[in-house]
Design a protein around this nucleic acid. Structure first.
Lengths: 254, 254
DNA sequence: CGCGACCTTGACGCCTGTCAACACACGTGG
DNA sequence: CCACGTGTGTTGACAGGCGTCAAGGTCGCG
Protein backbone atom coordinates (compact mmCIF):
# COMPACT_ATOMS: atom_id res chain seq x y z
CA UNK A 1 0.00 0.00 0.00
CA UNK A 2 1.20 3.48 -0.76
CA UNK A 3 2.22 5.69 2.14
CA UNK A 4 -0.92 7.00 3.75
CA UNK A 5 -3.09 4.67 1.73
CA UNK A 6 -5.08 3.76 4.82
CA UNK A 7 -5.48 7.34 6.01
CA UNK A 8 -9.16 7.53 5.10
CA UNK A 9 -9.90 4.35 7.00
CA UNK A 10 -8.16 5.79 10.04
CA UNK A 11 -10.08 9.05 9.67
CA UNK A 12 -13.49 7.43 9.45
CA UNK A 13 -12.84 4.73 12.01
CA UNK A 14 -12.60 7.53 14.54
CA UNK A 15 -16.20 8.46 13.74
CA UNK A 16 -17.91 5.07 13.60
CA UNK A 17 -16.68 1.55 14.27
CA UNK A 18 -15.57 -0.09 11.04
CA UNK A 19 -14.94 -3.74 10.32
CA UNK A 20 -11.73 -4.98 8.76
CA UNK A 21 -13.56 -5.45 5.46
CA UNK A 22 -14.86 -1.89 5.59
CA UNK A 23 -11.42 -0.56 6.25
CA UNK A 24 -10.18 -2.38 3.19
CA UNK A 25 -12.94 -0.79 1.12
CA UNK A 26 -11.51 2.56 2.10
CA UNK A 27 -7.92 1.80 1.20
CA UNK A 28 -6.55 3.82 -1.66
CA UNK A 29 -6.46 1.80 -4.83
CA UNK A 30 -2.74 1.33 -5.62
CA UNK A 31 -3.45 1.84 -9.30
CA UNK A 32 -4.92 5.23 -8.60
CA UNK A 33 -2.94 8.21 -9.78
CA UNK A 34 -1.65 10.34 -6.91
CA UNK A 35 -1.60 14.02 -7.71
CA UNK A 36 1.10 16.18 -6.18
CA UNK A 37 0.81 19.89 -5.59
CA UNK A 38 3.60 22.15 -4.41
CA UNK A 39 3.23 24.34 -1.36
CA UNK A 40 1.59 27.71 -1.85
CA UNK A 41 -0.27 26.68 -5.01
CA UNK A 42 -4.03 27.05 -5.22
CA UNK A 43 -5.70 23.72 -5.81
CA UNK A 44 -9.18 25.21 -6.06
CA UNK A 45 -9.93 28.76 -7.02
CA UNK A 46 -13.02 30.78 -6.26
CA UNK A 47 -15.33 30.77 -9.26
CA UNK A 48 -14.14 27.37 -10.49
CA UNK A 49 -16.72 24.76 -11.31
CA UNK A 50 -16.71 22.04 -8.66
CA UNK A 51 -14.95 18.84 -9.61
CA UNK A 52 -14.51 15.41 -8.13
CA UNK A 53 -14.37 14.49 -4.51
CA UNK A 54 -10.78 14.60 -3.31
CA UNK A 55 -8.87 12.98 -0.49
CA UNK A 56 -5.80 14.53 1.04
CA UNK A 57 -3.23 11.77 1.53
CA UNK A 58 -0.52 13.94 3.01
CA UNK A 59 0.21 17.60 3.54
CA UNK A 60 -1.90 20.52 4.77
CA UNK A 61 -4.20 22.84 2.88
CA UNK A 62 -6.49 25.73 3.75
CA UNK A 63 -9.82 26.97 2.50
CA UNK A 64 -9.80 30.74 2.33
CA UNK A 65 -11.77 33.73 1.21
CA UNK A 66 -10.48 37.16 0.32
CA UNK A 67 -11.84 40.68 0.31
CA UNK A 68 -11.21 42.94 -2.63
CA UNK A 69 -8.62 44.95 -0.75
CA UNK A 70 -6.50 41.90 -0.05
CA UNK A 71 -7.58 40.95 3.46
CA UNK A 72 -7.61 37.16 3.66
CA UNK A 73 -9.40 34.80 6.00
CA UNK A 74 -8.65 31.12 6.26
CA UNK A 75 -12.05 29.52 6.88
CA UNK A 76 -10.96 25.95 7.32
CA UNK A 77 -7.96 23.69 7.57
CA UNK A 78 -7.54 20.46 5.62
CA UNK A 79 -5.27 17.92 7.28
CA UNK A 80 -4.12 14.49 6.06
CA UNK A 81 -7.13 12.19 5.71
CA UNK A 82 -9.55 15.01 5.07
CA UNK A 83 -11.99 14.80 2.19
CA UNK A 84 -13.16 17.87 0.41
CA UNK A 85 -15.94 18.98 -1.83
CA UNK A 86 -17.99 15.99 -0.87
CA UNK A 87 -21.35 17.41 -1.87
CA UNK A 88 -20.32 20.21 -4.14
CA UNK A 89 -21.50 18.80 -7.45
CA UNK A 90 -24.78 20.66 -7.35
CA UNK A 91 -22.97 24.00 -7.32
CA UNK A 92 -22.24 26.16 -10.30
CA UNK A 93 -19.16 27.77 -8.92
CA UNK A 94 -17.29 27.83 -5.66
CA UNK A 95 -17.37 30.71 -3.23
CA UNK A 96 -13.89 30.13 -1.86
CA UNK A 97 -10.42 28.93 -2.77
CA UNK A 98 -8.18 26.24 -1.36
CA UNK A 99 -4.44 26.70 -1.10
CA UNK A 100 -1.76 24.13 -0.38
CA UNK A 101 0.09 25.11 2.79
CA UNK A 102 2.70 22.40 2.22
CA UNK A 103 3.49 20.03 -0.62
CA UNK A 104 0.47 17.80 -1.03
CA UNK A 105 -0.37 14.32 -2.20
CA UNK A 106 -4.01 13.76 -3.05
CA UNK A 107 -6.25 11.41 -4.99
CA UNK A 108 -9.51 12.05 -6.78
CA UNK A 109 -12.44 9.80 -6.02
CA UNK A 110 -15.03 9.45 -8.76
CA UNK A 111 -18.58 9.80 -7.58
CA UNK A 112 -19.49 6.35 -8.88
CA UNK A 113 -16.85 4.87 -6.62
CA UNK A 114 -18.19 6.87 -3.68
CA UNK A 115 -21.76 5.73 -4.33
CA UNK A 116 -20.58 2.16 -4.61
CA UNK A 117 -18.83 2.29 -1.25
CA UNK A 118 -21.80 4.01 0.41
CA UNK A 119 -24.18 1.36 -0.87
CA UNK A 120 -21.80 -1.34 0.28
CA UNK A 121 -21.60 -0.26 3.91
CA UNK A 122 -24.03 1.48 6.17
CA UNK A 123 -21.29 2.08 8.71
CA UNK A 124 -19.19 3.96 6.19
CA UNK A 125 -22.21 5.99 5.12
CA UNK A 126 -22.87 6.88 8.73
CA UNK A 127 -19.23 7.75 9.33
CA UNK A 128 -19.26 10.03 6.31
CA UNK A 129 -22.39 11.79 7.50
CA UNK A 130 -20.71 12.31 10.84
CA UNK A 131 -17.64 13.56 9.09
CA UNK A 132 -19.67 16.21 7.30
CA UNK A 133 -21.27 17.27 10.57
CA UNK A 134 -17.89 17.47 12.25
CA UNK A 135 -16.82 19.92 9.58
CA UNK A 136 -19.82 22.08 10.34
CA UNK A 137 -19.17 21.85 14.09
CA UNK A 138 -15.59 22.96 13.57
CA UNK A 139 -16.79 25.91 11.53
CA UNK A 140 -19.14 26.94 14.33
CA UNK A 141 -16.33 26.67 16.83
CA UNK A 142 -14.19 28.90 14.63
CA UNK A 143 -17.01 31.44 14.54
CA UNK A 144 -17.03 31.39 18.31
CA UNK A 145 -13.28 31.90 18.34
CA UNK A 146 -13.26 34.77 15.88
CA UNK A 147 -16.21 36.48 17.48
CA UNK A 148 -15.49 36.06 21.16
CA UNK A 149 -12.05 34.75 22.03
CA UNK A 150 -9.04 36.99 22.56
CA UNK A 151 -6.00 36.69 20.33
CA UNK A 152 -4.30 34.52 22.92
CA UNK A 153 -7.27 32.21 23.26
CA UNK A 154 -7.76 31.94 19.51
CA UNK A 155 -4.22 30.89 18.91
CA UNK A 156 -4.22 28.43 21.77
CA UNK A 157 -7.49 27.03 20.58
CA UNK A 158 -6.14 26.58 17.08
CA UNK A 159 -3.11 24.70 18.35
CA UNK A 160 -5.27 22.43 20.51
CA UNK A 161 -7.57 21.66 17.61
CA UNK A 162 -4.70 20.84 15.31
CA UNK A 163 -3.11 18.52 17.82
CA UNK A 164 -6.36 16.70 18.46
CA UNK A 165 -7.34 16.42 14.83
CA UNK A 166 -3.92 15.02 13.99
CA UNK A 167 -4.12 12.56 16.87
CA UNK A 168 -7.40 11.27 15.46
CA UNK A 169 -5.52 9.99 12.42
CA UNK A 170 -2.45 8.87 14.32
CA UNK A 171 -0.22 11.73 13.24
CA UNK A 172 0.94 12.88 16.65
CA UNK A 173 4.04 11.77 18.42
CA UNK A 174 3.23 12.02 22.10
CA UNK A 175 2.91 15.70 22.89
CA UNK A 176 4.39 16.69 19.57
CA UNK A 177 3.04 17.07 16.07
CA UNK A 178 3.81 18.80 12.81
CA UNK A 179 2.96 22.47 12.55
CA UNK A 180 3.99 23.64 9.10
CA UNK A 181 1.93 26.84 9.05
CA UNK A 182 3.79 30.12 8.95
CA UNK A 183 2.90 32.82 11.42
CA UNK A 184 1.24 34.76 8.61
CA UNK A 185 -0.97 31.76 7.88
CA UNK A 186 -1.85 31.40 11.55
CA UNK A 187 -2.74 35.08 11.46
CA UNK A 188 -5.06 34.56 8.51
CA UNK A 189 -6.73 31.66 10.29
CA UNK A 190 -7.29 33.49 13.56
CA UNK A 191 -8.10 36.93 12.24
CA UNK A 192 -5.19 38.63 13.96
CA UNK A 193 -2.08 40.32 12.66
CA UNK A 194 1.14 38.46 11.88
CA UNK A 195 2.98 40.78 14.25
CA UNK A 196 0.53 40.07 17.00
CA UNK A 197 0.67 36.32 16.33
CA UNK A 198 4.40 36.55 16.93
CA UNK A 199 3.98 38.43 20.19
CA UNK A 200 1.33 36.01 21.36
CA UNK A 201 3.39 32.94 20.52
CA UNK A 202 6.28 34.48 22.46
CA UNK A 203 4.04 34.82 25.46
CA UNK A 204 2.85 31.22 25.16
CA UNK A 205 6.45 30.09 24.96
CA UNK A 206 7.42 32.22 27.95
CA UNK A 207 4.62 30.65 29.97
CA UNK A 208 5.78 27.18 28.97
CA UNK A 209 2.55 26.37 27.19
CA UNK A 210 4.11 25.44 23.88
CA UNK A 211 7.41 24.64 22.24
CA UNK A 212 7.21 25.65 18.60
CA UNK A 213 10.36 25.41 16.58
CA UNK A 214 11.29 24.18 13.14
CA UNK A 215 7.75 23.36 12.06
CA UNK A 216 7.27 21.08 15.06
CA UNK A 217 4.79 21.88 17.80
CA UNK A 218 5.07 20.43 21.25
CA UNK A 219 2.41 20.95 23.90
CA UNK A 220 3.87 19.95 27.25
CA UNK A 221 0.53 20.10 29.05
CA UNK A 222 -2.43 19.88 26.70
CA UNK A 223 -4.98 20.22 29.48
CA UNK A 224 -3.44 23.44 30.61
CA UNK A 225 -3.40 24.88 27.10
CA UNK A 226 -7.02 23.84 26.66
CA UNK A 227 -7.91 25.60 29.85
CA UNK A 228 -6.32 28.94 29.09
CA UNK A 229 -7.74 28.80 25.56
CA UNK A 230 -11.27 27.99 26.72
CA UNK A 231 -11.08 24.87 24.61
CA UNK A 232 -13.87 22.38 25.08
CA UNK A 233 -13.56 19.21 23.06
CA UNK A 234 -17.29 18.58 22.99
CA UNK A 235 -17.46 19.76 19.41
CA UNK A 236 -15.00 17.10 18.28
CA UNK A 237 -15.83 14.34 20.71
CA UNK A 238 -19.60 14.33 20.45
CA UNK A 239 -19.03 12.91 17.01
CA UNK A 240 -16.79 10.07 17.97
CA UNK A 241 -17.81 6.45 17.84
CA UNK A 242 -20.16 5.84 20.73
CA UNK A 243 -18.55 3.88 23.51
CA UNK A 244 -19.89 0.32 23.71
CA UNK A 245 -22.58 0.31 26.41
CA UNK A 246 -21.56 -1.13 29.73
CA UNK A 247 -17.92 -0.30 29.36
CA UNK A 248 -16.76 1.55 32.42
CA UNK A 249 -14.19 4.18 31.76
CA UNK A 250 -11.71 5.24 34.36
CA UNK A 251 -14.31 5.12 37.06
CA UNK A 252 -12.44 6.07 40.16
CA UNK A 253 -9.14 5.42 38.45
CA UNK A 254 -6.12 6.80 40.16
CA UNK B 1 -53.54 26.69 3.64
CA UNK B 2 -52.23 28.00 6.90
CA UNK B 3 -50.33 31.28 6.89
CA UNK B 4 -46.87 30.59 5.58
CA UNK B 5 -47.80 27.09 4.53
CA UNK B 6 -46.05 27.55 1.22
CA UNK B 7 -42.90 29.07 2.71
CA UNK B 8 -40.78 25.99 2.10
CA UNK B 9 -41.81 25.87 -1.53
CA UNK B 10 -40.81 29.51 -1.89
CA UNK B 11 -37.51 28.86 -0.17
CA UNK B 12 -36.53 25.92 -2.32
CA UNK B 13 -37.89 27.32 -5.57
CA UNK B 14 -35.21 29.99 -5.25
CA UNK B 15 -32.59 27.23 -5.39
CA UNK B 16 -33.88 25.02 -8.19
CA UNK B 17 -36.83 25.31 -10.54
CA UNK B 18 -39.82 23.44 -9.16
CA UNK B 19 -42.98 22.37 -10.93
CA UNK B 20 -46.42 23.19 -9.60
CA UNK B 21 -46.76 19.59 -8.42
CA UNK B 22 -43.47 19.76 -6.58
CA UNK B 23 -44.49 22.96 -4.88
CA UNK B 24 -47.63 21.23 -3.68
CA UNK B 25 -45.53 18.40 -2.26
CA UNK B 26 -43.77 20.97 -0.12
CA UNK B 27 -46.90 22.61 1.24
CA UNK B 28 -47.40 22.19 4.93
CA UNK B 29 -49.99 19.58 5.67
CA UNK B 30 -52.94 21.49 7.21
CA UNK B 31 -53.49 18.65 9.66
CA UNK B 32 -49.97 19.06 10.97
CA UNK B 33 -49.60 20.48 14.43
CA UNK B 34 -47.94 23.88 14.47
CA UNK B 35 -45.75 24.42 17.48
CA UNK B 36 -45.41 27.89 18.90
CA UNK B 37 -42.49 29.13 20.89
CA UNK B 38 -42.27 32.47 22.66
CA UNK B 39 -39.44 34.91 22.02
CA UNK B 40 -36.27 34.38 24.02
CA UNK B 41 -36.92 30.69 24.69
CA UNK B 42 -34.37 28.07 23.74
CA UNK B 43 -35.81 25.59 21.28
CA UNK B 44 -32.67 23.47 21.18
CA UNK B 45 -30.11 23.29 23.92
CA UNK B 46 -26.47 22.27 23.69
CA UNK B 47 -26.11 18.68 24.79
CA UNK B 48 -29.63 17.70 23.74
CA UNK B 49 -30.07 14.65 21.61
CA UNK B 50 -31.00 15.65 18.07
CA UNK B 51 -34.66 15.33 17.16
CA UNK B 52 -36.74 15.67 14.05
CA UNK B 53 -36.16 17.93 11.14
CA UNK B 54 -37.93 21.23 11.71
CA UNK B 55 -39.24 23.97 9.47
CA UNK B 56 -39.58 27.55 10.63
CA UNK B 57 -42.92 28.86 9.39
CA UNK B 58 -42.62 32.31 10.85
CA UNK B 59 -40.39 34.22 13.24
CA UNK B 60 -36.62 34.42 13.63
CA UNK B 61 -34.23 32.21 15.59
CA UNK B 62 -30.48 32.04 16.15
CA UNK B 63 -27.97 29.26 16.61
CA UNK B 64 -25.47 30.23 19.26
CA UNK B 65 -22.56 28.96 21.28
CA UNK B 66 -21.36 30.19 24.63
CA UNK B 67 -18.09 30.26 26.50
CA UNK B 68 -17.99 29.36 30.16
CA UNK B 69 -17.60 32.95 31.22
CA UNK B 70 -20.77 34.02 29.49
CA UNK B 71 -19.49 35.37 26.20
CA UNK B 72 -21.98 34.42 23.51
CA UNK B 73 -21.63 34.12 19.76
CA UNK B 74 -24.52 33.76 17.37
CA UNK B 75 -23.24 31.40 14.69
CA UNK B 76 -26.23 31.43 12.39
CA UNK B 77 -29.58 33.04 11.78
CA UNK B 78 -32.76 31.09 11.01
CA UNK B 79 -35.34 33.05 9.05
CA UNK B 80 -38.84 32.04 7.96
CA UNK B 81 -38.65 29.11 5.56
CA UNK B 82 -35.42 27.82 7.00
CA UNK B 83 -35.04 24.15 7.84
CA UNK B 84 -32.86 23.03 10.65
CA UNK B 85 -31.15 19.93 11.86
CA UNK B 86 -31.52 18.33 8.50
CA UNK B 87 -28.77 15.77 8.89
CA UNK B 88 -28.34 15.73 12.61
CA UNK B 89 -29.74 12.32 13.39
CA UNK B 90 -26.36 10.65 13.39
CA UNK B 91 -25.22 12.83 16.26
CA UNK B 92 -25.28 11.93 19.90
CA UNK B 93 -25.63 15.43 21.20
CA UNK B 94 -25.59 18.92 19.79
CA UNK B 95 -22.70 21.30 20.11
CA UNK B 96 -24.80 24.44 20.08
CA UNK B 97 -28.15 25.87 21.10
CA UNK B 98 -30.91 27.59 19.20
CA UNK B 99 -32.86 30.47 20.68
CA UNK B 100 -36.06 32.07 19.44
CA UNK B 101 -35.44 35.73 18.71
CA UNK B 102 -39.14 36.37 18.21
CA UNK B 103 -42.28 34.34 18.72
CA UNK B 104 -42.04 31.36 16.40
CA UNK B 105 -44.31 29.03 14.53
CA UNK B 106 -42.72 25.81 13.39
CA UNK B 107 -43.60 22.31 12.29
CA UNK B 108 -41.73 19.06 12.72
CA UNK B 109 -41.15 16.93 9.67
CA UNK B 110 -40.74 13.20 10.30
CA UNK B 111 -37.84 11.66 8.48
CA UNK B 112 -40.08 9.21 6.67
CA UNK B 113 -41.96 12.13 5.17
CA UNK B 114 -38.67 13.73 4.12
CA UNK B 115 -37.43 10.52 2.49
CA UNK B 116 -40.73 10.14 0.70
CA UNK B 117 -40.55 13.64 -0.76
CA UNK B 118 -36.90 13.20 -1.74
CA UNK B 119 -37.66 9.96 -3.54
CA UNK B 120 -40.60 11.63 -5.26
CA UNK B 121 -38.69 14.48 -6.80
CA UNK B 122 -35.15 14.82 -8.00
CA UNK B 123 -35.56 18.56 -8.25
CA UNK B 124 -36.48 18.85 -4.59
CA UNK B 125 -33.56 16.64 -3.63
CA UNK B 126 -31.23 18.87 -5.60
CA UNK B 127 -32.73 22.00 -4.09
CA UNK B 128 -32.21 20.59 -0.62
CA UNK B 129 -28.61 19.73 -1.34
CA UNK B 130 -28.11 23.28 -2.56
CA UNK B 131 -29.84 24.57 0.52
CA UNK B 132 -27.38 22.72 2.73
CA UNK B 133 -24.46 24.11 0.76
CA UNK B 134 -25.87 27.62 1.01
CA UNK B 135 -25.83 27.26 4.78
CA UNK B 136 -22.16 26.32 4.66
CA UNK B 137 -21.40 29.21 2.31
CA UNK B 138 -23.09 31.63 4.69
CA UNK B 139 -21.03 30.27 7.55
CA UNK B 140 -17.84 30.84 5.59
CA UNK B 141 -18.90 34.37 4.79
CA UNK B 142 -19.53 34.98 8.48
CA UNK B 143 -16.04 33.69 9.23
CA UNK B 144 -14.69 36.21 6.75
CA UNK B 145 -16.72 38.93 8.43
CA UNK B 146 -15.66 38.10 11.95
CA UNK B 147 -12.04 37.65 11.01
CA UNK B 148 -11.46 40.50 8.60
CA UNK B 149 -14.22 43.05 8.40
CA UNK B 150 -14.41 46.11 10.63
CA UNK B 151 -17.35 46.59 12.96
CA UNK B 152 -18.97 48.91 10.46
CA UNK B 153 -18.55 46.46 7.61
CA UNK B 154 -19.78 43.51 9.67
CA UNK B 155 -22.96 45.24 10.63
CA UNK B 156 -23.60 46.48 7.11
CA UNK B 157 -22.91 43.03 5.78
CA UNK B 158 -25.33 41.46 8.22
CA UNK B 159 -28.09 43.87 7.22
CA UNK B 160 -27.49 43.21 3.52
CA UNK B 161 -27.60 39.48 4.06
CA UNK B 162 -30.81 39.65 6.03
CA UNK B 163 -32.51 41.79 3.42
CA UNK B 164 -31.45 39.49 0.60
CA UNK B 165 -32.34 36.28 2.41
CA UNK B 166 -35.76 37.66 3.24
CA UNK B 167 -36.28 38.78 -0.33
CA UNK B 168 -35.61 35.21 -1.48
CA UNK B 169 -38.76 34.10 0.31
CA UNK B 170 -40.81 37.15 -0.57
CA UNK B 171 -40.64 38.78 2.85
CA UNK B 172 -39.36 42.19 1.82
CA UNK B 173 -41.45 45.18 1.03
CA UNK B 174 -39.44 47.16 -1.47
CA UNK B 175 -36.43 48.53 0.37
CA UNK B 176 -37.88 47.58 3.72
CA UNK B 177 -38.04 44.42 5.75
CA UNK B 178 -38.50 43.23 9.31
CA UNK B 179 -35.55 43.51 11.65
CA UNK B 180 -36.65 42.22 15.04
CA UNK B 181 -33.16 41.67 16.48
CA UNK B 182 -32.13 43.80 19.43
CA UNK B 183 -28.83 45.61 19.33
CA UNK B 184 -27.47 43.14 21.86
CA UNK B 185 -28.37 40.28 19.51
CA UNK B 186 -26.74 42.06 16.59
CA UNK B 187 -23.70 42.43 18.80
CA UNK B 188 -23.64 38.70 19.52
CA UNK B 189 -23.93 37.94 15.82
CA UNK B 190 -21.15 40.28 14.74
CA UNK B 191 -18.74 39.79 17.60
CA UNK B 192 -18.82 43.41 18.70
CA UNK B 193 -20.12 45.14 21.79
CA UNK B 194 -23.71 46.31 22.21
CA UNK B 195 -22.42 49.80 22.89
CA UNK B 196 -20.37 49.79 19.74
CA UNK B 197 -23.26 48.38 17.70
CA UNK B 198 -25.25 51.38 18.80
CA UNK B 199 -22.55 53.83 17.83
CA UNK B 200 -22.08 52.13 14.47
CA UNK B 201 -25.79 52.11 13.70
CA UNK B 202 -25.87 55.82 14.52
CA UNK B 203 -23.14 56.39 12.00
CA UNK B 204 -24.95 54.39 9.34
CA UNK B 205 -28.08 56.39 9.99
CA UNK B 206 -26.17 59.66 9.84
CA UNK B 207 -24.74 58.67 6.48
CA UNK B 208 -28.19 57.83 5.17
CA UNK B 209 -27.35 54.17 4.64
CA UNK B 210 -30.17 52.76 6.71
CA UNK B 211 -33.41 53.68 8.42
CA UNK B 212 -33.89 51.37 11.37
CA UNK B 213 -36.78 52.11 13.67
CA UNK B 214 -39.45 50.10 15.39
CA UNK B 215 -38.16 46.71 14.26
CA UNK B 216 -38.35 47.77 10.61
CA UNK B 217 -35.24 48.13 8.51
CA UNK B 218 -35.16 50.24 5.39
CA UNK B 219 -32.16 50.34 3.09
CA UNK B 220 -32.56 53.32 0.76
CA UNK B 221 -29.69 52.28 -1.50
CA UNK B 222 -28.81 48.61 -1.18
CA UNK B 223 -25.96 48.82 -3.67
CA UNK B 224 -24.32 51.57 -1.67
CA UNK B 225 -24.64 49.63 1.57
CA UNK B 226 -23.20 46.56 -0.13
CA UNK B 227 -20.29 48.59 -1.35
CA UNK B 228 -19.29 50.10 1.97
CA UNK B 229 -19.74 46.71 3.65
CA UNK B 230 -17.64 44.86 1.09
CA UNK B 231 -20.65 42.69 0.43
CA UNK B 232 -20.43 40.39 -2.57
CA UNK B 233 -23.51 38.35 -3.28
CA UNK B 234 -21.60 35.58 -4.98
CA UNK B 235 -21.96 33.38 -1.94
CA UNK B 236 -25.76 33.54 -2.10
CA UNK B 237 -26.27 33.86 -5.82
CA UNK B 238 -24.00 31.09 -7.03
CA UNK B 239 -26.55 28.75 -5.54
CA UNK B 240 -29.58 30.16 -7.24
CA UNK B 241 -31.50 28.37 -9.95
CA UNK B 242 -29.45 28.48 -13.10
CA UNK B 243 -30.78 30.92 -15.63
CA UNK B 244 -32.42 29.24 -18.61
CA UNK B 245 -29.79 29.08 -21.37
CA UNK B 246 -30.13 31.63 -24.10
CA UNK B 247 -31.79 34.23 -21.99
CA UNK B 248 -29.99 37.50 -22.35
CA UNK B 249 -29.84 39.54 -19.21
CA UNK B 250 -29.60 43.28 -19.34
CA UNK B 251 -27.06 43.15 -22.13
CA UNK B 252 -26.23 46.74 -22.76
CA UNK B 253 -29.35 47.83 -20.95
CA UNK B 254 -29.58 51.49 -20.10
C1' DC C 1 -47.08 54.38 38.50
C1' DG C 2 -43.12 51.71 38.69
C1' DC C 3 -40.39 48.25 36.66
C1' DG C 4 -37.77 45.93 33.14
C1' DA C 5 -35.96 45.72 28.54
C1' DC C 6 -33.85 48.31 25.37
C1' DC C 7 -31.47 52.32 23.43
C1' DT C 8 -28.21 56.25 23.85
C1' DT C 9 -24.25 58.89 25.16
C1' DG C 10 -19.74 60.22 27.30
C1' DA C 11 -15.21 59.34 29.34
C1' DC C 12 -11.46 56.51 29.51
C1' DG C 13 -8.25 52.82 28.49
C1' DC C 14 -6.43 48.65 26.50
C1' DC C 15 -5.87 45.16 23.14
C1' DT C 16 -4.48 44.87 18.87
C1' DG C 17 -3.13 47.05 14.37
C1' DT C 18 0.31 49.74 11.89
C1' DC C 19 4.76 51.03 10.51
C1' DA C 20 9.43 50.22 10.30
C1' DA C 21 13.70 48.02 11.12
C1' DC C 22 16.47 44.23 11.67
C1' DA C 23 17.85 39.19 12.14
C1' DC C 24 18.05 34.80 10.27
C1' DA C 25 17.80 30.78 7.18
C1' DC C 26 17.96 29.08 2.78
C1' DG C 27 18.63 28.63 -2.11
C1' DT C 28 20.60 30.41 -6.37
C1' DG C 29 23.91 32.02 -9.36
C1' DG C 30 28.25 34.07 -10.21
C1' DC D 1 32.84 30.18 -1.60
C1' DC D 2 30.48 34.28 -1.17
C1' DA D 3 27.01 37.87 -2.63
C1' DC D 4 22.43 38.37 -2.98
C1' DG D 5 17.41 37.96 -2.74
C1' DT D 6 13.37 36.28 -0.72
C1' DG D 7 10.49 34.45 2.75
C1' DT D 8 10.00 34.23 7.55
C1' DG D 9 10.51 35.49 12.31
C1' DT D 10 11.39 39.25 15.85
C1' DT D 11 11.20 43.60 18.16
C1' DG D 12 10.00 48.47 19.37
C1' DA D 13 7.30 52.73 19.15
C1' DC D 14 3.06 54.55 18.42
C1' DA D 15 -1.89 54.98 17.50
C1' DG D 16 -6.60 53.93 16.93
C1' DG D 17 -10.72 51.02 16.91
C1' DC D 18 -13.29 49.04 19.97
C1' DG D 19 -14.27 47.49 24.83
C1' DT D 20 -15.53 48.88 29.46
C1' DC D 21 -17.92 51.38 32.82
C1' DA D 22 -21.47 54.22 34.08
C1' DA D 23 -25.38 57.11 33.80
C1' DG D 24 -29.46 58.43 31.95
C1' DG D 25 -33.52 58.21 28.51
C1' DT D 26 -37.52 56.01 26.32
C1' DC D 27 -41.09 52.84 25.79
C1' DG D 28 -44.42 49.31 26.93
C1' DC D 29 -46.71 46.66 30.21
C1' DG D 30 -48.62 44.78 34.57
Amino acid sequence: MQPGGDILARRLAALAPLSEAERRMLAVDPSQRVRRTPARADIVREGDAPGDLRLLLSGWAARYKMLDDGRRQIVGLLLPGDLFDLHMTVLHELDHSIAALTDLRLVEIPHERLDQVLRGSGAIARALRRYTLMGAAIQREWLLSLGQRTAFERLGHLLCEIHIRLSMVGLTNGNACDMPMTQTEMADATGITPVHVNRTLQEMRARGLIVLKGRILEIPDLDQLKQVSLFSDAYLQSLGARRPPGQVVALGAA
